[in-house]
Write a protein that binds this DNA or RNA. Structure first.
Lengths: 349, 349
DNA sequence: CACGCGAATGAGAACGTTTTCATGTTTTAG
DNA sequence: CTAAAACATGAAAACGTTCTCATTCGCGTG
């Protein structure tokens, strides 16, 4: 691996001159420049970013942490972020936290040791005291994405309003008994915000508060949870899921139970994962512009690195996508408690 | 940001001693060690990875390039890789190539300048001469994933055998007129291998060669392409798609055309994306262990970095997942050319 | 009591850059 | 033709580590 010194020797100049040529600084005789370029080519010299970083005190690397890349929402955001970063000549170091608070902290610590110039993070709960503590202690630009706005610049959608919009859609169609199926209602700030917006809007419309169902992160089969939920006397006619992945699994579980969507139960998701539009019935969902969020976060953080000051928060527009998974409630449900909606209905408790 | 020098001053020792304490080297008096630790805590000193890297000549960062993170297959592989890397104390720099050969080269160049210790890549075509040229010129450990085995250590599945397995499944069910719907048959080595395995197996079974349909990378609506494909006198009764994303879109397009899956046409995917199992009908597919592939690649590359020598290739097992999207061909098709299979059939050309 | 030996610590070079300041060489103006 | 100004280049320090040699200290041994 050739160093600047090798190039200098070969070209018969000093390392300072080579550096100037490499960085395209003015004040080099064309002839000298050519000689240096030749040497660079001959040795296929690539300036060592580490040496450069050490001197410059900057690594030109962005650190990114998301809960998981297995959820396309985050994967797409990272993709957008990465594109934007590359355009600006920045690299992107990626870590995942698996929705675990301790892992979050450790992962960010690792990124900081890696000397990233700035961070783009999604944490479980930006309002959590412990999280805020270490978050506020970070001495570099930080931008949060997907989290609820707090002490750090944040790029997100209006989760409460989005939850309310979902509620209003259900109510408009005639639903009143609703449930929320969430990954971790207690732990995740955005999930909580969606829930709150949803529940408040329902209350405003005079509906009873929605039932809550919480699903542990790693549980992929929702069969039991959904069966339990639908087993009561007056099961919900509409389910608001805290993300599309859960919504898909919920639909699969309902199908297992012999319940039709949206005939017996309506299902609504959150995120707007592309593949969910291809389901049958296609999933109604609140879509957020993931890729754009990643791009916006990159732009924001790069701006801050360039000496600018980042907006405290950027709220991107969400969009209610009306798919086929939401329809009016079944007739029976409108009259109150009834028998199982289908012949294969689950036994009542 | 405190440096080792600040700590040394504060603890009243030399920087060498601090370095020894930080790196847990023996031969330090417990008392001294304690004093240094105190200073470290007081200044919340974190050793600068860049300084360390410069001296050590190693960055403890792995570079990863995949076509896109929007395809869960790659996102999951990166997730697995990242986990494994972190366990070993390595960071992961991620780039995407958008399936573009020029971008591939540029992206890898960027990673190399970033001084990653080793690379894990998925390229369009590992057999392509130009690609091989720059690939072979890389002076660090490189592991390819998803690509066909070539001059560099590779982690993949047996794409040809997987393609053949798909073909055999179709034939076993009675299909003979088949088509392949691929992202870029010409450009991608794995897609080509699947195609070859598929076509050869068909030939071996005495079936006519499959029709090819190629879909540009960014084209998400396959309506026209599928309509054209199904418009002929004797349209295919089974479609083998080069990945699950395309398979999903193909199913959506078929539905648009009023064709039933698998009643009128059977559809088979490739990859085993988790969400496709939740489709209705669930997608039959050849599943590859993406996460494991990422982990294996990380293990391999780390082993090589540790001075070991990597196996030239690792073939992980694929698995034929029998979903609901593949069934016997419609009766009519078995008798040869007929009228459109449904009342909403597409006009014949 | 001097000597030597091992343990603990320090001084300083090295890693590959960038950058400041100094120096040598042209060019331009007078 | 000379002096000054503009230009081109070089020497060396600095960034924050690690690591190799010294060096110092304490102490047991002859």
């Amino acid at each position: 691996m050739a160093t600047i010194r090798d190039v200098a020797r070969r070209a018969g100049v000093s390392i300072a001159t080579v550096s100037r040529v490499v960085n395209e600084q003015p004040g080099i005789r064309p002839e000298t420049r050519a000689r240096v370029h030749d040497a660079i080519d001959e040795l296929s010299f690539r300036p060592n970013a580490i040496g450069r970083s050490l001197k410059a005190g900057t690594s030109r690397v962005l650190g990114v942490m998301v809960p998981t890349l297995a959820n396309p929402v985050f994967a797409e955001a990272v993709e957008g972020l990465q594109h934007e970063a590359r355009k600006a000549g920045y690299g992107v170091m990626v870590t995942t936290s698996d929705y675990d608070a301790d892992t979050e902290r450790a992962a960010v610590e690792t990124l900081m040791i890696g000397r990233v110039d700035a961070l783009v993070l999604t944490v479980r709960d930006a309002a959590d005291a412990a999280t805020r503590a270490w978050l506020d202690a970070i001495d570099r630009p930080v931008v949060l994405i997907y989290n609820e706005p707090g002490s750090r610049p944040t790029v997100t959608v209006d989760n409460a309003a989005a939850g309310a919009a979902a509620a209003e859609m259900f109510v408009r169609l005639g639903h009143s008994r609703l449930a929320v199926v969430a990954g971790s209602l207690t732990g995740s700030d955005r999930s909580r915000a969606r829930w709150l917006g949803f529940a408040n809007a329902l209350q405003a419309q005079g509906c009873p508060p929605p039932v809550k169902v919480e699903i542990p992160f790693h549980q992929t089969d929702l069969g039991q949870a959904i069966a339990d939920l639908m087993a009561g006397d007056a099961p919900p006619t509409g389910l608001f899921c805290s993300n599309d992945l859960i919504a898909m699994r919920t639909m699969a579980a309902l199908r297992e139970l012999g319940l039709g969507v949206p005939g017996d139960v309506s299902v609504m998701g959150f995120d707007g994962i592309a593949t969910c539009r291809l389901l049958h019935p296609s999933l109604s969902t609140v879509s957020q512009p993931s890729r754009t969020m990643g791009e916006a976060a990159a732009t924001l953080v790069l701006k801050e690195l360039a000496g600018g000051v980042a907006e405290p928060f950027t709220i991107l527009p969400h969009r209610l996508v009306e798919g086929g998974s939401v329809g009016p409630p079944p007739r029976a449900a409108q009259r109150g408690p009834t028998t199982s909606p289908t012949e294969r209905g689950v036994p009542s408790t």
